[in-house]
Amino acid sequence: AGPANRNLPFVVEADNAVYTDIEQTSQFSGNVILTQGTMVIHAANVETIVDPEGYQYATAKGGNKGLVHFRQQREGTNEWIDAYGEELIYDGKQNLIHLRRKAIMRRLSPAGKLIDEIKGDELVYNQLTEVFESKAVPGVSGRTKVIITPNSNASQK
């Protein structure tokens, strides 16, 4: 979540939940929807944990067609980041979103038109700088594929 969203609470809806007091973890399952400001994550299972400093972390797995779906509005614009992957890790302290395995991240115009797209084995999106990068995963012979649409005036409207 961008600077404005960062301190907003997580709102999680699910069919079931198990809270383990000692480890301070919550496991949500069954059509899980996690929102924080404009960030929305859809998954089959989400586990959240709080670190001693109070930062939230979340690990999401599975979902529609086995993929976690992440969506967030870019700060100060009407553009959207739309991403998928088999696993998503949200790091509340560093404001990073890690997407792993079959990871795709797209930047969409307000009208939903594709502007940029990146595919890879592991993608990392920095919510503060709003930069997403592809990481090589040791031992995995994957490739990164990037589609960048020239920044024409039309795309500004």
């Binding site: 301190n7 907003l8 609470p9 997580f10 709102v11 999680v12 069919d15 709080v50 109070g54 509340g92």
Partner: peptide
């Protein structure tokens, strides 16, 4: 289930 988890840093 609806959970509101606050980011209490």
């Amino acid at each position: 289930i609806k959970a509101i988890l606050t980011n209490e840093v």
